[in-house]
Protein backbone atom coordinates (compact mmCIF):
# COMPACT_ATOMS: atom_id res chain seq x y z
CA UNK A 1 0.00 0.00 0.00
CA UNK A 2 1.26 3.40 -1.02
CA UNK A 3 2.22 5.77 1.77
CA UNK A 4 0.05 8.71 0.79
CA UNK A 5 -2.97 6.50 0.05
CA UNK A 6 -2.60 4.95 3.48
CA UNK A 7 -2.44 8.39 5.09
CA UNK A 8 -5.51 9.43 3.15
CA UNK A 9 -7.51 6.41 4.27
CA UNK A 10 -6.49 6.72 7.92
CA UNK A 11 -7.28 10.43 7.81
CA UNK A 12 -10.69 9.67 6.30
CA UNK A 13 -11.33 7.02 8.96
CA UNK A 14 -10.42 9.30 11.86
CA UNK A 15 -12.40 12.19 10.35
CA UNK A 16 -15.62 10.22 10.00
CA UNK A 17 -15.03 8.70 13.45
CA UNK A 18 -14.80 12.16 14.97
CA UNK A 19 -17.78 13.20 12.87
CA UNK A 20 -19.81 10.33 14.33
CA UNK A 21 -18.78 11.32 17.86
CA UNK A 22 -19.79 14.93 17.18
CA UNK A 23 -23.11 13.73 15.76
CA UNK A 24 -23.71 11.72 18.94
CA UNK A 25 -22.72 14.65 21.15
CA UNK A 26 -24.58 17.44 19.38
CA UNK A 27 -27.54 15.92 17.59
CA UNK A 28 -28.40 12.84 19.67
CA UNK A 29 -27.70 14.17 23.15
CA UNK A 30 -28.10 17.75 24.25
CA UNK A 31 -24.52 18.58 25.04
CA UNK A 32 -24.39 20.07 28.54
CA UNK A 33 -21.32 22.22 27.93
CA UNK A 34 -23.11 24.48 25.50
CA UNK A 35 -26.13 25.63 27.37
CA UNK A 36 -26.18 27.06 30.89
CA UNK A 37 -22.70 28.49 30.91
CA UNK A 38 -23.77 31.17 33.31
CA UNK A 39 -26.20 30.17 35.96
CA UNK A 40 -27.23 31.10 39.46
CA UNK A 41 -28.34 28.89 42.30
CA UNK A 42 -31.72 28.87 43.98
CA UNK A 43 -32.98 26.81 46.87
CA UNK A 44 -36.50 25.68 47.66
CA UNK A 45 -37.95 23.60 50.49
CA UNK A 46 -40.76 21.13 49.94
CA UNK A 47 -42.76 18.92 52.31
CA UNK A 48 -42.71 16.16 49.74
CA UNK A 49 -40.81 16.03 46.48
CA UNK A 50 -42.43 12.87 45.11
CA UNK A 51 -40.23 11.47 42.36
CA UNK A 52 -38.09 14.54 41.73
CA UNK A 53 -34.44 13.73 41.01
CA UNK A 54 -31.17 15.54 40.49
CA UNK A 55 -31.04 16.67 36.81
CA UNK A 56 -34.83 17.07 36.71
CA UNK A 57 -35.84 20.08 34.63
CA UNK A 58 -36.97 23.42 36.03
CA UNK A 59 -39.54 25.06 33.79
CA UNK A 60 -41.34 28.36 33.71
CA UNK A 61 -44.31 28.74 31.39
CA UNK A 62 -43.27 25.34 30.03
CA UNK A 63 -39.84 26.54 28.93
CA UNK A 64 -36.70 24.87 30.33
CA UNK A 65 -34.91 27.51 32.44
CA UNK A 66 -32.69 25.33 34.65
CA UNK A 67 -32.05 22.01 36.30
CA UNK A 68 -32.18 20.52 39.78
CA UNK A 69 -28.62 20.03 41.00
CA UNK A 70 -29.01 18.53 44.44
CA UNK A 71 -31.69 17.20 46.76
CA UNK A 72 -31.17 16.53 50.44
CA UNK A 73 -33.19 16.11 53.59
CA UNK A 74 -33.11 18.69 56.37
CA UNK A 75 -33.38 16.79 59.68
CA UNK A 76 -34.19 19.97 61.63
CA UNK A 77 -37.36 20.87 59.77
CA UNK A 78 -38.09 17.48 58.14
CA UNK A 79 -38.26 19.08 54.74
CA UNK A 80 -36.62 18.26 51.45
CA UNK A 81 -34.15 20.91 50.32
CA UNK A 82 -33.91 21.18 46.54
CA UNK A 83 -31.08 23.13 44.97
CA UNK A 84 -31.29 24.20 41.35
CA UNK A 85 -29.29 26.11 38.81
CA UNK A 86 -31.17 28.66 36.76
CA UNK A 87 -29.86 30.11 33.53
CA UNK A 88 -28.69 33.63 34.35
CA UNK A 89 -30.54 35.03 31.32
CA UNK A 90 -33.74 34.56 33.29
CA UNK A 91 -34.43 36.51 36.49
CA UNK A 92 -37.45 35.78 38.69
CA UNK A 93 -39.23 38.04 41.21
CA UNK A 94 -38.63 37.37 44.92
CA UNK A 95 -42.15 36.04 45.49
CA UNK A 96 -41.94 33.38 42.76
CA UNK A 97 -44.00 30.28 43.43
CA UNK A 98 -42.30 26.87 42.97
CA UNK A 99 -44.41 23.74 42.57
CA UNK A 100 -43.67 20.18 41.58
CA UNK A 101 -45.61 18.98 38.57
CA UNK A 102 -45.73 15.78 36.59
CA UNK A 103 -45.27 15.78 32.82
CA UNK A 104 -48.28 13.88 31.58
CA UNK A 105 -50.02 11.31 33.75
CA UNK A 106 -47.03 9.08 34.43
CA UNK A 107 -44.16 11.20 33.15
CA UNK A 108 -41.15 12.61 34.94
CA UNK A 109 -41.56 15.23 37.59
CA UNK A 110 -40.28 18.76 37.22
CA UNK A 111 -40.32 22.05 39.08
CA UNK A 112 -42.57 24.74 37.69
CA UNK A 113 -41.79 28.36 38.55
CA UNK A 114 -44.63 30.88 38.52
CA UNK A 115 -43.38 34.45 38.81
CA UNK A 116 -45.05 36.74 41.33
CA UNK A 117 -45.29 40.53 41.28
CA UNK A 118 -42.40 41.60 43.47
CA UNK A 119 -40.07 44.24 42.09
CA UNK A 120 -36.95 42.69 43.59
CA UNK A 121 -35.51 39.63 41.90
CA UNK A 122 -34.19 36.43 43.42
CA UNK A 123 -30.42 36.70 43.91
CA UNK A 124 -27.82 33.95 43.68
CA UNK A 125 -28.29 31.47 46.52
CA UNK A 126 -31.71 32.84 47.51
CA UNK A 127 -34.48 30.65 48.79
CA UNK A 128 -37.91 30.40 47.17
CA UNK A 129 -40.34 30.84 50.07
CA UNK A 130 -43.60 29.78 48.45
CA UNK A 131 -43.63 26.15 47.43
CA UNK A 132 -46.16 23.48 46.72
CA UNK A 133 -45.35 19.81 47.16
CA UNK A 134 -45.70 17.04 44.64
CA UNK A 135 -49.09 15.42 44.26
CA UNK A 136 -48.78 11.84 45.43
CA UNK A 137 -51.12 9.71 43.38
CA UNK A 138 -51.76 7.15 46.13
CA UNK A 139 -52.80 9.91 48.54
CA UNK A 140 -55.17 11.34 45.97
CA UNK A 141 -56.74 7.97 45.24
CA UNK A 142 -57.15 7.08 48.92
CA UNK A 143 -58.65 10.50 49.63
CA UNK A 144 -61.10 10.00 46.78
CA UNK A 145 -62.07 6.54 48.01
CA UNK A 146 -62.45 7.85 51.56
CA UNK A 147 -64.72 10.66 50.40
CA UNK A 148 -66.79 8.25 48.32
CA UNK A 149 -67.18 5.95 51.32
CA UNK A 150 -68.19 8.88 53.52
CA UNK A 151 -70.75 9.99 50.92
CA UNK A 152 -72.24 6.51 50.82
CA UNK A 153 -72.68 6.49 54.59
CA UNK A 154 -74.26 9.94 54.76
CA UNK A 155 -76.91 9.18 52.12
CA UNK A 156 -78.07 6.11 53.96
CA UNK A 157 -81.07 6.76 56.20
Amino acid sequence: MNRTTLDLWVGFFVAIGIGALLFLALKVSSFPGIQMEKAYRLEARFDNIGGLKAQSPVRSAGVLVGRVTDIHFDPATYEAVVEMRIDSRYAFPADTFASIYTAGLLGDQYIGLEPGGDERNLADGARIMKTQSAVVLEKLVSQFLFNKAAEGQSTQP
Binding site: A25, K27, S29, S30, F31, P32, G33
Partner: peptide
Protein backbone atom coordinates in the same frame (compact mmCIF):
# COMPACT_ATOMS: atom_id res chain seq x y z
CA UNK B 1 -35.17 13.97 17.66
CA UNK B 2 -36.47 16.07 20.55
CA UNK B 3 -37.49 13.09 22.67
CA UNK B 4 -34.08 11.60 21.94
CA UNK B 5 -32.26 14.78 22.96
CA UNK B 6 -34.36 15.15 26.08
CA UNK B 7 -33.48 11.71 27.41
CA UNK B 8 -29.95 11.08 26.12
CA UNK B 9 -27.38 12.61 28.43
CA UNK B 10 -23.93 13.34 27.03
CA UNK B 11 -22.03 12.43 30.16
CA UNK B 12 -24.04 9.36 31.12
CA UNK B 13 -24.86 7.81 27.78
CA UNK B 14 -22.50 8.98 25.04
CA UNK B 15 -19.36 9.29 27.15
CA UNK B 16 -19.93 6.01 29.00
CA UNK B 17 -20.39 4.29 25.63
Amino acid sequence: WSSMQASVDFRHDVWNG
